[in-house]
Design a protein around this nucleic acid. Sequence first.
DNA 1: AACAATTGTTGTCGTCAACAACAATCTTCC
DNA 2: GGAAGATTGTTGTTGACGACAACAATTGTT
Lengths: 177, 177
Amino acid sequence: MTRNSQAPRIAKSRAGIRPRPGRTRSGNGNAHNDLMNGEIGLDALAGHAGYAVRRFQIWIFQDFIRTLGAVDIRPTQYSVMTVIGANPGLSQMAVAKRLGIERARLVHLLDSLEQRDLVSRVKSATDRRSHALHLTPRGKASLAQFKRLAAEHERHVAEKIGKDNREQLLRILSAFT
Amino acid sequence: MTRNSQAPRIAKSRAGIRPRPGRTRSGNGNAHNDLMNGEIGLDALAGHAGYAVRRFQIWIFQDFIRTLGAVDIRPTQYSVMTVIGANPGLSQMAVAKRLGIERARLVHLLDSLEQRDLVSRVKSATDRRSHALHLTPRGKASLAQFKRLAAEHERHVAEKIGKDNREQLLRILSAFT
DNA sequence: AACAATTGTTGTCGTCAACAACAATCTTCC
DNA sequence: GGAAGATTGTTGTTGACGACAACAATTGTT
């Protein structure tokens, strides 16, 4: 990979979107095109929670990936390590269920984390089908650093939408955690 | 960016990934203990806006897709049609920028919508490189129906998180639209 | 012991974002 | 006026991610 894709490269923001350098003529019936002043309306989209949430989530993930770019940890990896760290010995099935991840997907995530010596799969003594997941010593130390960086990312969120708004957001969406 | 990360050459040949360390201790005597009470803590994850937003976005998209399943319209398709409907004559580049979609991705989206006779690409007279996007008559009629279904979806959101909370959410995230 | 369910794993398919390269076509600058 | 550079739509590749299906090993259930 070497390239994690999704590196944000925050927009260059250049000039506004000019609809067309030339004239946007071609007299179509619609005369009220706000395109002339460079504004592109969203119409009904502005009232849809899903659209705003999607855009916000993209922004948040990009900031998270950038803030934790130095340690090469993505949001999903962070969530897996956090849950394992707080609940040592969990099975892969339990982690997958708790985080809403497919267990097939978790296999690859753990392969990666295990190769980096952050997580270890210990054969369960009580159920030889399953693995008891633990953080390695290196994983524990790393997670502490990840959490510091994640807290920094969270501060970025607070700066972006406001401290109070962030707390309201967490309260409103607390049912989804 | 600039991530060296790990090599992807795992591919097949699974087998010996587990280092099988001689970790004698690590009290594996109680492997699946924490599962017994069914409670799995999220630890720091509970305080991360990104995690809650991601889970919420998954829920919202699923409800949107289900609610508009009868007409086979997905959120991104709906957003494209809404913007074109509100701003006829836009170029693909302008739509892509406004919605934060890659223009390469928009090509396929428009291919699909054009095949269904919902959107038409009209060769621009002023810039022969670009296409002026319009809704077809069928597209306009369909969009009206889509909007009714989308409004129903929005009511589901209000039921899920509460009417007032939904409005606060829209207000908090208004900067991202 | 026979049968059903669970766990981890592998594999496939489809969606989606980020990039790179390209032809056709402006735009700009000399 | 014409060469050089930028833009638009397009195709293709890569990687992250979710949904499923199939499988071996191992429970559990009867």
